[in-house]
């Protein structure tokens, strides 16, 4: 698998039956992925697998040996620094426990749809539970990030 851009060969067979979430947290030290329910309901463990936002508690390591996986720790290198900064600037985080999953859902959306509308953001985040905020600032942060990425790209062109 490729994990945050790094090739990982020869994942030992005894780990193939492990939940991807546990593999990330205990074998790779990537504790940004959080467990909130263990049954794909809360979205806190969401990572990006081959471009799609997926709850890593429902995936076994053996299923993703050939996949490209990105966690919250790999967001900045994947060009999502603007998204991270927007969540900070918009004060869109409180306890923060759901935020890695939320960011991965947003990043997967932005990779697919560079300038999403509110309906697309809502659909992308419908599987991420947050109990502290009321989600509203997530829209603003995604719009800010889309705008910054657009401006950056225009600057580079």
């Amino acid at each position: 698998m490729r994990l945050n851009g790094i090739e990982i060969d020869n994942v030992p067979a005894e780990l193939h039956g492990m939940r991807l979430l546990d593999y990330l947290r205990t074998e790779r030290g990537l504790t940004g992925a959080k467990e909130g329910c263990g049954m794909g309901e809360c979205g806190s463990c969401t990572v990006v697998i081959d471009g799609a936002a997926v709850t890593s508690c429902l995936v076994l390591v053996g299923q993703v040996l050939d996949a490209e996986i990105r966690t919250v720790e790999g967001l900045a290198d994947a060009g999502h620094g603007p998204l991270q900064r927007a969540f900070v600037a918009r004060q869109a985080v409180q306890c923060g426990y759901c935020i890695p999953g939320v960011l991965n859902s947003c990043a997967a959306l932005l990779d697919r749809v560079p300038d999403p509308d509110d309906e697309q953001i809502r659909t992308a985040l419908d599987g991420n539970l947050c109990r502290c905020t009321a989600y509203n600032r997530f829209y603003d942060a995604v719009h800010d990030a889309a705008c910054e990425r657009r401006t950056d790209q225009a600057g580079q062109a």
Binding site: V88, Q91, I99, P100
Partner: peptide, 13 residues
């Protein structure tokens, strides 16, 4: 912004 927001969004907290 909260003092730990920067670490929250990178997963470092």
């Amino acid at each position: 912004p909260s003092v730990d927001a920067g670490e929250i969004v990178t997963g470092a907290l």
